[in-house]
Design a binder for these strands. Structure first.
Lengths: 235, 235
DNA sequence: CGCGGGGTTGAAAGGCCTCAAAACGTGTGG
DNA sequence: CCACACGTTTTGAGGCCTTTCAACCCCGCG
Protein backbone atom coordinates (compact mmCIF):
# COMPACT_ATOMS: atom_id res chain seq x y z
CA UNK A 1 0.00 0.00 0.00
CA UNK A 2 1.33 3.36 -0.97
CA UNK A 3 1.29 6.47 1.08
CA UNK A 4 1.72 9.41 -1.18
CA UNK A 5 -0.22 11.83 0.98
CA UNK A 6 1.99 14.72 2.04
CA UNK A 7 -0.16 15.32 5.07
CA UNK A 8 0.95 12.08 6.67
CA UNK A 9 4.55 11.50 5.66
CA UNK A 10 5.88 8.11 6.55
CA UNK A 11 2.68 7.01 8.25
CA UNK A 12 2.29 3.81 6.35
CA UNK A 13 -0.65 1.52 6.91
CA UNK A 14 -0.58 -2.23 6.98
CA UNK A 15 -1.25 -4.07 3.74
CA UNK A 16 -3.23 -7.27 4.26
CA UNK A 17 -1.85 -8.77 1.10
CA UNK A 18 1.69 -7.83 1.90
CA UNK A 19 4.18 -10.61 1.47
CA UNK A 20 7.45 -10.48 3.30
CA UNK A 21 10.52 -8.72 2.13
CA UNK A 22 9.34 -5.17 2.70
CA UNK A 23 12.04 -2.83 3.82
CA UNK A 24 11.59 0.05 6.21
CA UNK A 25 9.34 2.81 4.89
CA UNK A 26 10.86 5.60 2.90
CA UNK A 27 10.92 8.90 4.70
CA UNK A 28 12.43 11.32 2.29
CA UNK A 29 11.08 14.77 3.03
CA UNK A 30 12.20 16.05 -0.32
CA UNK A 31 10.26 13.43 -2.27
CA UNK A 32 7.18 13.94 -0.11
CA UNK A 33 7.39 17.62 -0.88
CA UNK A 34 7.75 17.05 -4.60
CA UNK A 35 4.84 14.59 -4.57
CA UNK A 36 2.79 17.13 -2.69
CA UNK A 37 3.40 19.96 -5.07
CA UNK A 38 2.71 17.88 -8.17
CA UNK A 39 -0.49 16.39 -6.82
CA UNK A 40 -3.95 17.82 -6.57
CA UNK A 41 -6.55 16.50 -4.18
CA UNK A 42 -9.85 15.68 -5.84
CA UNK A 43 -13.19 14.71 -4.38
CA UNK A 44 -15.77 12.83 -6.40
CA UNK A 45 -19.18 11.56 -5.46
CA UNK A 46 -20.36 8.00 -6.02
CA UNK A 47 -20.91 6.55 -9.47
CA UNK A 48 -18.72 8.96 -11.38
CA UNK A 49 -15.94 7.85 -13.70
CA UNK A 50 -12.41 8.84 -12.76
CA UNK A 51 -11.03 7.87 -16.16
CA UNK A 52 -12.24 5.82 -19.08
CA UNK A 53 -10.76 2.84 -20.89
CA UNK A 54 -9.01 3.82 -24.07
CA UNK A 55 -8.73 7.50 -23.23
CA UNK A 56 -5.31 9.14 -23.14
CA UNK A 57 -3.83 8.59 -19.71
CA UNK A 58 -2.36 11.89 -18.63
CA UNK A 59 -2.61 11.17 -14.94
CA UNK A 60 -2.08 8.50 -12.33
CA UNK A 61 -3.95 8.48 -9.03
CA UNK A 62 -3.65 7.53 -5.44
CA UNK A 63 -6.87 6.69 -3.63
CA UNK A 64 -7.06 8.32 -0.18
CA UNK A 65 -10.53 7.15 0.78
CA UNK A 66 -13.55 5.41 -0.70
CA UNK A 67 -13.52 2.61 -3.25
CA UNK A 68 -13.32 2.47 -7.01
CA UNK A 69 -14.41 -0.17 -9.51
CA UNK A 70 -11.98 -1.04 -12.30
CA UNK A 71 -13.57 -2.55 -15.40
CA UNK A 72 -12.98 -3.43 -19.01
CA UNK A 73 -15.62 -3.38 -21.70
CA UNK A 74 -16.23 -5.66 -24.65
CA UNK A 75 -17.53 -3.80 -27.68
CA UNK A 76 -20.96 -5.44 -27.38
CA UNK A 77 -21.41 -4.25 -23.83
CA UNK A 78 -20.21 -7.26 -21.88
CA UNK A 79 -18.17 -6.01 -18.97
CA UNK A 80 -15.50 -7.50 -16.76
CA UNK A 81 -14.58 -5.92 -13.47
CA UNK A 82 -10.87 -6.55 -13.07
CA UNK A 83 -10.45 -5.11 -9.61
CA UNK A 84 -11.79 -3.07 -6.76
CA UNK A 85 -9.50 -0.36 -5.47
CA UNK A 86 -9.70 0.71 -1.85
CA UNK A 87 -8.11 3.34 0.35
CA UNK A 88 -4.38 3.50 -0.21
CA UNK A 89 -4.39 1.86 -3.61
CA UNK A 90 -2.62 3.25 -6.61
CA UNK A 91 -4.46 3.69 -9.90
CA UNK A 92 -2.96 3.73 -13.37
CA UNK A 93 0.25 2.64 -15.01
CA UNK A 94 2.92 5.36 -15.08
CA UNK A 95 4.50 3.98 -18.25
CA UNK A 96 1.30 3.47 -20.24
CA UNK A 97 -0.07 6.26 -22.39
CA UNK A 98 -3.63 4.94 -22.59
CA UNK A 99 -5.94 3.62 -19.88
CA UNK A 100 -6.44 -0.10 -20.12
CA UNK A 101 -9.63 0.06 -18.08
CA UNK A 102 -12.32 2.33 -16.73
CA UNK A 103 -12.33 3.51 -13.12
CA UNK A 104 -15.72 4.26 -11.59
CA UNK A 105 -16.29 5.42 -8.02
CA UNK A 106 -18.47 3.19 -5.88
CA UNK A 107 -18.60 5.59 -2.95
CA UNK A 108 -17.67 9.21 -2.52
CA UNK A 109 -13.90 9.26 -2.83
CA UNK A 110 -11.01 11.56 -2.27
CA UNK A 111 -7.98 10.94 -4.40
CA UNK A 112 -4.78 12.62 -5.41
CA UNK A 113 -4.05 13.25 -9.04
CA UNK A 114 -0.50 13.20 -10.41
CA UNK A 115 0.53 14.24 -13.87
CA UNK A 116 1.54 10.92 -15.36
CA UNK A 117 4.67 12.06 -17.15
CA UNK A 118 5.94 14.11 -14.25
CA UNK A 119 5.22 11.18 -11.93
CA UNK A 120 7.06 8.75 -14.19
CA UNK A 121 9.88 11.24 -14.21
CA UNK A 122 10.01 11.47 -10.45
CA UNK A 123 9.82 7.69 -10.35
CA UNK A 124 12.94 7.41 -12.46
CA UNK A 125 14.75 9.92 -10.26
CA UNK A 126 13.62 8.35 -6.99
CA UNK A 127 14.55 4.69 -6.55
CA UNK A 128 12.77 4.43 -3.22
CA UNK A 129 9.51 5.62 -4.70
CA UNK A 130 9.99 3.28 -7.63
CA UNK A 131 10.52 0.42 -5.24
CA UNK A 132 7.29 1.25 -3.44
CA UNK A 133 5.27 1.37 -6.63
CA UNK A 134 7.05 -1.74 -7.84
CA UNK A 135 6.01 -3.67 -4.76
CA UNK A 136 2.47 -2.42 -5.15
CA UNK A 137 2.40 -3.71 -8.70
CA UNK A 138 3.84 -7.05 -7.66
CA UNK A 139 0.94 -7.36 -5.26
CA UNK A 140 -1.52 -6.38 -7.99
CA UNK A 141 -0.07 -9.12 -10.14
CA UNK A 142 -0.57 -11.70 -7.41
CA UNK A 143 -4.17 -10.58 -6.95
CA UNK A 144 -4.77 -10.73 -10.69
CA UNK A 145 -3.41 -14.28 -10.82
CA UNK A 146 -5.67 -15.37 -7.99
CA UNK A 147 -8.59 -13.81 -9.79
CA UNK A 148 -7.78 -15.65 -13.01
CA UNK A 149 -7.98 -18.91 -11.07
CA UNK A 150 -11.35 -17.85 -9.68
CA UNK A 151 -12.73 -16.79 -13.05
CA UNK A 152 -11.56 -19.84 -14.92
CA UNK A 153 -12.03 -22.67 -12.51
CA UNK A 154 -14.50 -21.93 -9.75
CA UNK A 155 -18.24 -22.57 -9.60
CA UNK A 156 -20.77 -19.81 -8.94
CA UNK A 157 -21.03 -20.66 -5.27
CA UNK A 158 -17.27 -20.80 -4.84
CA UNK A 159 -16.95 -17.48 -6.62
CA UNK A 160 -19.45 -15.67 -4.43
CA UNK A 161 -18.10 -17.18 -1.22
CA UNK A 162 -14.52 -16.35 -2.18
CA UNK A 163 -15.58 -12.85 -3.13
CA UNK A 164 -17.13 -12.14 0.25
CA UNK A 165 -14.09 -13.44 2.11
CA UNK A 166 -11.78 -11.50 -0.17
CA UNK A 167 -13.68 -8.30 0.43
CA UNK A 168 -13.66 -8.85 4.18
CA UNK A 169 -9.91 -9.32 4.22
CA UNK A 170 -9.35 -6.38 1.92
CA UNK A 171 -11.33 -4.01 4.11
CA UNK A 172 -10.09 -5.43 7.38
CA UNK A 173 -7.29 -2.88 7.81
CA UNK A 174 -9.79 -0.08 7.36
CA UNK A 175 -12.76 -1.17 9.40
CA UNK A 176 -11.54 -4.11 11.41
CA UNK A 177 -12.39 -7.74 10.89
CA UNK A 178 -16.12 -7.57 11.47
CA UNK A 179 -18.71 -10.07 10.32
CA UNK A 180 -20.58 -7.33 8.48
CA UNK A 181 -19.46 -6.76 4.91
CA UNK A 182 -20.48 -3.60 3.10
CA UNK A 183 -21.39 -4.04 -0.54
CA UNK A 184 -21.50 -0.55 -2.02
CA UNK A 185 -22.04 -2.02 -5.48
CA UNK A 186 -24.92 -3.59 -7.38
CA UNK A 187 -25.41 -7.31 -8.10
CA UNK A 188 -24.50 -6.45 -11.67
CA UNK A 189 -21.13 -5.11 -10.52
CA UNK A 190 -20.50 -8.23 -8.47
CA UNK A 191 -21.53 -10.44 -11.38
CA UNK A 192 -19.19 -8.57 -13.69
CA UNK A 193 -16.41 -9.09 -11.18
CA UNK A 194 -17.04 -12.81 -10.85
CA UNK A 195 -17.95 -13.59 -14.44
CA UNK A 196 -21.58 -14.32 -13.57
CA UNK A 197 -24.95 -12.77 -14.27
CA UNK A 198 -26.62 -10.64 -11.64
CA UNK A 199 -29.36 -13.25 -11.26
CA UNK A 200 -26.86 -15.98 -10.48
CA UNK A 201 -25.22 -13.76 -7.87
CA UNK A 202 -28.57 -13.10 -6.26
CA UNK A 203 -29.61 -16.73 -6.32
CA UNK A 204 -26.28 -17.90 -4.91
CA UNK A 205 -26.48 -15.41 -2.07
CA UNK A 206 -29.99 -16.40 -1.07
CA UNK A 207 -28.91 -20.02 -1.18
CA UNK A 208 -26.01 -19.24 1.18
CA UNK A 209 -28.46 -17.32 3.34
CA UNK A 210 -30.89 -20.26 3.47
CA UNK A 211 -28.06 -22.42 4.74
CA UNK A 212 -27.41 -19.85 7.48
CA UNK A 213 -23.90 -19.23 6.22
CA UNK A 214 -24.54 -15.57 5.57
CA UNK A 215 -27.40 -13.15 6.09
CA UNK A 216 -28.30 -10.72 3.35
CA UNK A 217 -28.82 -7.25 4.80
CA UNK A 218 -29.37 -3.87 3.14
CA UNK A 219 -26.21 -2.78 1.28
CA UNK A 220 -24.22 -5.73 2.46
CA UNK A 221 -24.14 -9.17 4.04
CA UNK A 222 -23.34 -10.51 7.45
CA UNK A 223 -21.15 -13.56 7.78
CA UNK A 224 -22.82 -16.01 10.13
CA UNK A 225 -20.47 -18.95 9.72
CA UNK A 226 -17.03 -17.97 8.44
CA UNK A 227 -15.88 -21.56 8.71
CA UNK A 228 -18.50 -22.93 6.33
CA UNK A 229 -18.18 -19.89 4.08
CA UNK A 230 -14.51 -20.67 3.66
CA UNK A 231 -15.39 -24.26 2.88
CA UNK A 232 -17.94 -23.09 0.30
CA UNK A 233 -15.18 -21.01 -1.28
CA UNK A 234 -13.11 -24.15 -1.73
CA UNK A 235 -10.80 -22.96 1.05
CA UNK B 1 11.23 -7.67 -22.63
CA UNK B 2 14.26 -8.02 -20.48
CA UNK B 3 17.72 -8.81 -21.61
CA UNK B 4 19.73 -10.04 -18.72
CA UNK B 5 22.07 -12.19 -20.78
CA UNK B 6 25.67 -11.03 -20.35
CA UNK B 7 26.62 -12.52 -23.67
CA UNK B 8 24.58 -9.95 -25.55
CA UNK B 9 24.80 -6.74 -23.57
CA UNK B 10 22.41 -4.05 -24.71
CA UNK B 11 21.01 -6.09 -27.56
CA UNK B 12 17.39 -5.64 -26.69
CA UNK B 13 14.63 -7.21 -28.73
CA UNK B 14 11.30 -5.66 -29.60
CA UNK B 15 8.35 -6.35 -27.36
CA UNK B 16 5.09 -6.73 -29.30
CA UNK B 17 3.01 -5.63 -26.33
CA UNK B 18 5.19 -2.66 -25.63
CA UNK B 19 3.31 0.56 -25.10
CA UNK B 20 5.04 3.83 -25.63
CA UNK B 21 7.11 5.66 -23.10
CA UNK B 22 10.08 3.35 -23.16
CA UNK B 23 13.39 5.05 -22.70
CA UNK B 24 16.63 4.04 -24.32
CA UNK B 25 17.96 0.67 -23.19
CA UNK B 26 20.26 0.55 -20.23
CA UNK B 27 23.84 -0.30 -21.08
CA UNK B 28 25.72 -0.38 -17.85
CA UNK B 29 28.64 -2.70 -18.16
CA UNK B 30 29.03 -2.94 -14.44
CA UNK B 31 25.46 -4.13 -13.93
CA UNK B 32 25.74 -6.59 -16.80
CA UNK B 33 28.83 -7.99 -15.16
CA UNK B 34 27.18 -8.31 -11.78
CA UNK B 35 24.15 -9.97 -13.35
CA UNK B 36 26.44 -12.35 -15.16
CA UNK B 37 28.34 -13.45 -12.11
CA UNK B 38 25.23 -13.98 -10.02
CA UNK B 39 23.43 -15.94 -12.69
CA UNK B 40 23.78 -19.53 -13.75
CA UNK B 41 22.64 -20.81 -17.10
CA UNK B 42 20.37 -23.82 -16.90
CA UNK B 43 19.02 -26.11 -19.58
CA UNK B 44 15.91 -28.16 -19.05
CA UNK B 45 14.09 -30.52 -21.35
CA UNK B 46 10.38 -30.35 -22.05
CA UNK B 47 7.76 -31.11 -19.40
CA UNK B 48 9.91 -30.50 -16.37
CA UNK B 49 8.96 -28.14 -13.59
CA UNK B 50 11.18 -25.13 -13.03
CA UNK B 51 9.59 -24.31 -9.69
CA UNK B 52 6.42 -25.31 -7.90
CA UNK B 53 3.59 -23.28 -6.44
CA UNK B 54 3.91 -22.78 -2.72
CA UNK B 55 7.57 -23.75 -2.55
CA UNK B 56 10.08 -21.31 -1.09
CA UNK B 57 11.16 -18.97 -3.88
CA UNK B 58 14.90 -18.65 -3.60
CA UNK B 59 15.42 -17.75 -7.23
CA UNK B 60 14.05 -15.64 -10.04
CA UNK B 61 14.57 -16.54 -13.67
CA UNK B 62 15.02 -15.07 -17.08
CA UNK B 63 13.95 -17.22 -20.01
CA UNK B 64 16.49 -17.21 -22.84
CA UNK B 65 14.76 -19.65 -25.16
CA UNK B 66 11.82 -22.03 -25.22
CA UNK B 67 8.46 -21.54 -23.53
CA UNK B 68 7.14 -22.18 -20.07
CA UNK B 69 3.61 -22.73 -18.75
CA UNK B 70 2.62 -20.87 -15.58
CA UNK B 71 -0.23 -22.44 -13.65
CA UNK B 72 -2.05 -22.43 -10.33
CA UNK B 73 -3.67 -25.45 -8.76
CA UNK B 74 -6.87 -25.80 -6.78
CA UNK B 75 -6.64 -28.36 -3.98
CA UNK B 76 -8.99 -30.75 -5.80
CA UNK B 77 -6.85 -30.77 -8.91
CA UNK B 78 -8.55 -28.12 -11.01
CA UNK B 79 -5.85 -26.10 -12.70
CA UNK B 80 -5.69 -22.62 -14.18
CA UNK B 81 -2.90 -21.64 -16.53
CA UNK B 82 -2.24 -17.98 -15.77
CA UNK B 83 0.32 -17.33 -18.46
CA UNK B 84 2.71 -18.65 -21.05
CA UNK B 85 6.23 -17.32 -20.84
CA UNK B 86 8.34 -17.06 -23.96
CA UNK B 87 11.90 -16.13 -24.83
CA UNK B 88 12.95 -12.97 -23.05
CA UNK B 89 10.34 -13.16 -20.31
CA UNK B 90 11.09 -12.80 -16.66
CA UNK B 91 9.85 -15.40 -14.15
CA UNK B 92 9.17 -14.86 -10.49
CA UNK B 93 8.59 -11.96 -8.15
CA UNK B 94 11.79 -10.63 -6.58
CA UNK B 95 9.96 -9.40 -3.48
CA UNK B 96 7.90 -12.54 -2.85
CA UNK B 97 9.28 -15.32 -0.70
CA UNK B 98 6.97 -18.07 -2.02
CA UNK B 99 6.03 -19.01 -5.55
CA UNK B 100 2.46 -18.09 -6.38
CA UNK B 101 2.37 -20.53 -9.27
CA UNK B 102 4.06 -23.50 -10.88
CA UNK B 103 6.31 -23.11 -13.90
CA UNK B 104 6.52 -26.08 -16.28
CA UNK B 105 8.57 -26.20 -19.45
CA UNK B 106 6.65 -26.82 -22.67
CA UNK B 107 9.74 -27.16 -24.82
CA UNK B 108 13.41 -27.59 -24.06
CA UNK B 109 14.44 -24.31 -22.50
CA UNK B 110 17.53 -22.45 -21.51
CA UNK B 111 17.16 -20.00 -18.69
CA UNK B 112 19.26 -18.02 -16.28
CA UNK B 113 18.83 -18.44 -12.61
CA UNK B 114 19.36 -15.57 -10.16
CA UNK B 115 19.43 -15.85 -6.43
CA UNK B 116 16.26 -14.01 -5.49
CA UNK B 117 17.60 -12.08 -2.54
CA UNK B 118 20.77 -11.04 -4.29
CA UNK B 119 18.73 -10.04 -7.32
CA UNK B 120 16.33 -7.97 -5.20
CA UNK B 121 19.37 -6.41 -3.66
CA UNK B 122 20.86 -5.50 -6.99
CA UNK B 123 17.47 -4.20 -8.02
CA UNK B 124 17.44 -1.79 -5.12
CA UNK B 125 20.93 -0.61 -5.92
CA UNK B 126 20.30 -0.27 -9.66
CA UNK B 127 17.44 2.04 -10.59
CA UNK B 128 17.81 1.35 -14.30
CA UNK B 129 17.42 -2.39 -13.78
CA UNK B 130 14.49 -1.76 -11.48
CA UNK B 131 12.89 0.37 -14.16
CA UNK B 132 13.28 -2.42 -16.70
CA UNK B 133 11.73 -5.03 -14.44
CA UNK B 134 9.07 -2.53 -13.46
CA UNK B 135 8.06 -2.02 -17.07
CA UNK B 136 8.02 -5.76 -17.63
CA UNK B 137 5.65 -6.15 -14.69
CA UNK B 138 3.44 -3.36 -15.95
CA UNK B 139 3.09 -5.29 -19.17
CA UNK B 140 2.34 -8.48 -17.28
CA UNK B 141 -0.41 -6.66 -15.46
CA UNK B 142 -1.95 -5.48 -18.73
CA UNK B 143 -1.86 -9.03 -20.09
CA UNK B 144 -3.41 -10.37 -16.90
CA UNK B 145 -6.24 -7.85 -17.14
CA UNK B 146 -6.92 -8.80 -20.73
CA UNK B 147 -6.99 -12.43 -19.70
CA UNK B 148 -9.48 -11.75 -16.93
CA UNK B 149 -11.81 -10.24 -19.50
CA UNK B 150 -11.39 -13.34 -21.64
CA UNK B 151 -11.96 -15.76 -18.78
CA UNK B 152 -14.98 -13.99 -17.38
CA UNK B 153 -16.84 -12.77 -20.40
CA UNK B 154 -16.00 -14.63 -23.59
CA UNK B 155 -17.61 -17.72 -25.09
CA UNK B 156 -15.67 -20.87 -25.90
CA UNK B 157 -15.28 -19.94 -29.54
CA UNK B 158 -14.15 -16.41 -28.72
CA UNK B 159 -11.68 -17.79 -26.21
CA UNK B 160 -10.07 -20.20 -28.64
CA UNK B 161 -9.94 -17.67 -31.46
CA UNK B 162 -8.47 -15.00 -29.21
CA UNK B 163 -5.96 -17.52 -27.88
CA UNK B 164 -4.67 -18.37 -31.33
CA UNK B 165 -4.31 -14.73 -32.32
CA UNK B 166 -2.65 -13.95 -29.02
CA UNK B 167 -0.10 -16.71 -29.49
CA UNK B 168 0.63 -15.59 -33.02
CA UNK B 169 1.33 -12.05 -31.88
CA UNK B 170 3.36 -13.18 -28.93
CA UNK B 171 5.61 -15.36 -31.03
CA UNK B 172 5.80 -12.97 -33.93
CA UNK B 173 9.06 -11.31 -32.79
CA UNK B 174 10.68 -14.74 -32.57
CA UNK B 175 9.54 -16.53 -35.67
CA UNK B 176 7.90 -13.85 -37.78
CA UNK B 177 4.22 -13.36 -38.43
CA UNK B 178 3.49 -16.62 -40.19
CA UNK B 179 0.11 -18.27 -40.60
CA UNK B 180 1.39 -21.40 -38.91
CA UNK B 181 1.04 -21.42 -35.13
CA UNK B 182 2.96 -23.97 -33.11
CA UNK B 183 1.11 -25.44 -30.17
CA UNK B 184 3.71 -27.21 -28.05
CA UNK B 185 1.07 -27.95 -25.42
CA UNK B 186 -1.83 -30.34 -25.01
CA UNK B 187 -5.53 -29.53 -25.36
CA UNK B 188 -5.65 -29.90 -21.60
CA UNK B 189 -3.10 -27.11 -21.22
CA UNK B 190 -5.04 -24.89 -23.60
CA UNK B 191 -8.28 -25.66 -21.79
CA UNK B 192 -6.70 -24.82 -18.45
CA UNK B 193 -5.51 -21.56 -19.95
CA UNK B 194 -8.93 -20.63 -21.30
CA UNK B 195 -11.09 -21.97 -18.51
CA UNK B 196 -12.50 -24.77 -20.68
CA UNK B 197 -12.31 -28.54 -20.81
CA UNK B 198 -10.01 -30.22 -23.30
CA UNK B 199 -13.03 -31.60 -25.15
CA UNK B 200 -14.51 -28.16 -25.65
CA UNK B 201 -11.17 -26.89 -26.97
CA UNK B 202 -11.01 -29.78 -29.42
CA UNK B 203 -14.60 -29.37 -30.56
CA UNK B 204 -14.21 -25.63 -30.99
CA UNK B 205 -11.10 -26.07 -33.07
CA UNK B 206 -12.68 -28.61 -35.40
CA UNK B 207 -15.67 -26.28 -35.75
CA UNK B 208 -13.33 -23.45 -36.78
CA UNK B 209 -11.61 -25.87 -39.14
CA UNK B 210 -14.92 -26.92 -40.72
CA UNK B 211 -15.59 -23.27 -41.44
CA UNK B 212 -12.19 -23.02 -43.14
CA UNK B 213 -11.02 -20.39 -40.69
CA UNK B 214 -8.14 -22.52 -39.47
CA UNK B 215 -6.63 -25.88 -40.34
CA UNK B 216 -5.63 -28.23 -37.57
CA UNK B 217 -2.18 -29.68 -38.25
CA UNK B 218 0.12 -31.83 -36.12
CA UNK B 219 1.40 -29.82 -33.13
CA UNK B 220 -0.27 -26.64 -34.26
CA UNK B 221 -2.78 -24.91 -36.45
CA UNK B 222 -2.61 -22.89 -39.63
CA UNK B 223 -4.59 -19.70 -39.89
CA UNK B 224 -6.51 -19.74 -43.16
CA UNK B 225 -8.59 -16.60 -42.66
CA UNK B 226 -7.13 -14.20 -40.12
CA UNK B 227 -9.93 -11.73 -40.81
CA UNK B 228 -12.69 -14.10 -39.82
CA UNK B 229 -10.64 -15.49 -36.95
CA UNK B 230 -10.40 -12.00 -35.53
CA UNK B 231 -14.14 -11.62 -35.92
CA UNK B 232 -14.70 -14.95 -34.17
CA UNK B 233 -12.56 -13.64 -31.33
CA UNK B 234 -14.91 -10.68 -30.93
CA UNK B 235 -12.34 -8.38 -32.54
C1' DC C 1 -49.18 8.12 -5.94
C1' DG C 2 -46.73 6.57 -9.70
C1' DC C 3 -42.28 5.98 -11.48
C1' DG C 4 -37.67 3.90 -11.81
C1' DG C 5 -33.67 1.43 -10.27
C1' DG C 6 -32.22 -2.43 -7.87
C1' DG C 7 -33.25 -7.03 -6.08
C1' DT C 8 -35.54 -11.54 -6.02
C1' DT C 9 -37.71 -15.47 -7.98
C1' DG C 10 -39.46 -18.65 -11.64
C1' DA C 11 -39.46 -21.40 -15.95
C1' DA C 12 -37.23 -22.67 -19.97
C1' DA C 13 -33.22 -22.86 -22.99
C1' DG C 14 -28.61 -23.49 -24.01
C1' DG C 15 -23.71 -23.88 -23.70
C1' DC C 16 -20.35 -26.27 -21.70
C1' DC C 17 -19.16 -30.33 -18.97
C1' DT C 18 -19.06 -35.28 -17.89
C1' DC C 19 -18.50 -39.79 -19.11
C1' DA C 20 -17.37 -42.98 -22.57
C1' DA C 21 -15.45 -44.95 -26.64
C1' DA C 22 -13.03 -44.87 -30.74
C1' DA C 23 -9.30 -42.88 -33.72
C1' DC C 24 -4.78 -41.34 -34.12
C1' DG C 25 0.34 -40.92 -33.59
C1' DT C 26 4.54 -42.33 -31.78
C1' DG C 27 7.93 -45.05 -29.69
C1' DT C 28 9.10 -49.88 -28.14
C1' DG C 29 10.09 -54.51 -28.55
C1' DG C 30 9.35 -58.81 -30.73
C1' DC D 1 8.67 -54.60 -40.31
C1' DC D 2 4.87 -55.22 -37.75
C1' DA D 3 2.30 -55.56 -33.33
C1' DC D 4 1.39 -53.39 -29.36
C1' DA D 5 1.04 -50.00 -25.73
C1' DC D 6 0.47 -45.51 -24.27
C1' DG D 7 -0.80 -40.84 -24.42
C1' DT D 8 -3.36 -37.49 -26.94
C1' DT D 9 -7.17 -36.09 -29.79
C1' DT D 10 -11.57 -36.57 -31.64
C1' DT D 11 -16.35 -37.63 -31.51
C1' DG D 12 -20.77 -38.88 -29.34
C1' DA D 13 -24.66 -38.81 -26.00
C1' DG D 14 -26.58 -37.15 -21.97
C1' DG D 15 -26.92 -34.05 -18.11
C1' DC D 16 -26.15 -30.07 -15.32
C1' DC D 17 -25.13 -25.42 -14.22
C1' DT D 18 -25.60 -21.04 -15.61
C1' DT D 19 -27.94 -17.94 -18.60
C1' DT D 20 -31.97 -15.90 -20.62
C1' DC D 21 -36.29 -13.89 -20.44
C1' DA D 22 -39.89 -12.53 -17.63
C1' DA D 23 -42.65 -11.21 -13.78
C1' DC D 24 -42.88 -9.38 -9.37
C1' DC D 25 -41.33 -7.00 -5.11
C1' DC D 26 -39.19 -3.39 -2.50
C1' DC D 27 -38.02 1.23 -1.61
C1' DG D 28 -36.77 6.03 -2.30
C1' DC D 29 -38.20 10.02 -4.62
C1' DG D 30 -40.37 13.44 -7.61
Amino acid sequence: MLDLAPSSPCARQLDPHQGMGRQAPVCDGHVDLELAEMSRQIRLCAKTTVFAEGARADAVWSLDSGSVLLSKLLRDGRRQVIGIAVSGDFLGLPMQSANGFTATTLTPVVLRRFDRVRFADLLNRTPDLMRQVFETFSQELVLAQDHMLLLGRRSAEEKVAAFLLHLRDRWAPLQGLTSRIDLPMTRQDIGDYLGLTLETVSRTMTKLAQRKIIAVIPDGVRILDAERLARAAGL
